[in-house]
Amino acid sequence: MPESARIRMRHELGLDQPVHMQYLSYIFGLFTGNYGTSWWAHENVWNMIVIYFPATFELVVAAMFFAIVVGFITGVLAAVRRDTVSDHALRGLTLFGISLPIFWIALMLQLIIAVELGWLPVAGNTDPLFTPHRITGFMVLDSILGLNYMALIDSLKHLIMPAIALGLYIMAYVSRLTRANLVEALSQDYIVTARAKGLPQRMIIYKHALKNAIIPVITVTIYQFAWLMGGSVVTEVIFSWPGIGWLYFQAILIRDFPIIQGVCGFVAIWLGVLLFLMDLLTYHFDPRIRTGW
């Protein structure tokens, strides 16, 4: 490339500034939403992130919902029925869940359910025929807001497989963790007191044991949320889901550093939010922390 063009590019990218200035302006840019311009798309990176973000958020929330609800329920069941057939079966299944590589399970789901059986769509988050009017960018939400029944069904159909593929690992993890913590809680002395008081079994499990067991589960779940962001890259690539992960992948392939930096910075901010959320939830659930015990 001609020398003059190179000089101009260096100036545009701010590379002719001293390193610490570059770093500072980068951090500053992160917080003010100025991530620069994509080399490839010639679009403002922040705008791009905003456009692609809702799809990822929708996927991650759906996956998390699936993971927490199913994981929690199976974990409680396994703990309450400790050492019975159902307990062992669930533990075996969850072992599979945490060992199955996410790209493999996503691919298998795609293969079996979409390609072979044709029950669900293969890829994408919407069918052009049924795309709802874009209000928030969340397909499901937009369908509801637009009172568009067909779009709702369509977007849910597209959401199921990616959400399960993404959430499976976390579901298995939550299930095992819940089981372990509940079993531990049920072996504590205060449970003996509760039994001596003649409290019904259900009350003992939900009011006494679970409230204790849930504390570490919450902390870990928030950590897993961070893992989900990474997992969504793979899921979005496989299902051609138009989210941040997919965007990041494309950027990596063509070495578009503004986007790469932008997404990384964005993820970092999200992590900060998550950590804060985790502190908040732990504070709510564990009174011992409140009084500095």
């Binding site: 950590y223 961070a226 893992w227 989900l228 962001m229 990474g230 997992g231 890259v233 793979v234 990041y248 992948f249 990596i252 070495r255 790469i260 997404v263 990384c264 993820v267 970092a268 992590l271 998550l274 950590l275």
Partner: peptide, 17 residues
């Protein structure tokens, strides 16, 4: 903690590139 939390895949992609 930061490295622990930061999604490994995203980081890995960056490093590999």
């Amino acid at each position: 903690d930061t490295f622990y939390l930061f999604p490994l895949i995203i980081l890995g992609m960056l490093v590999s590139v």
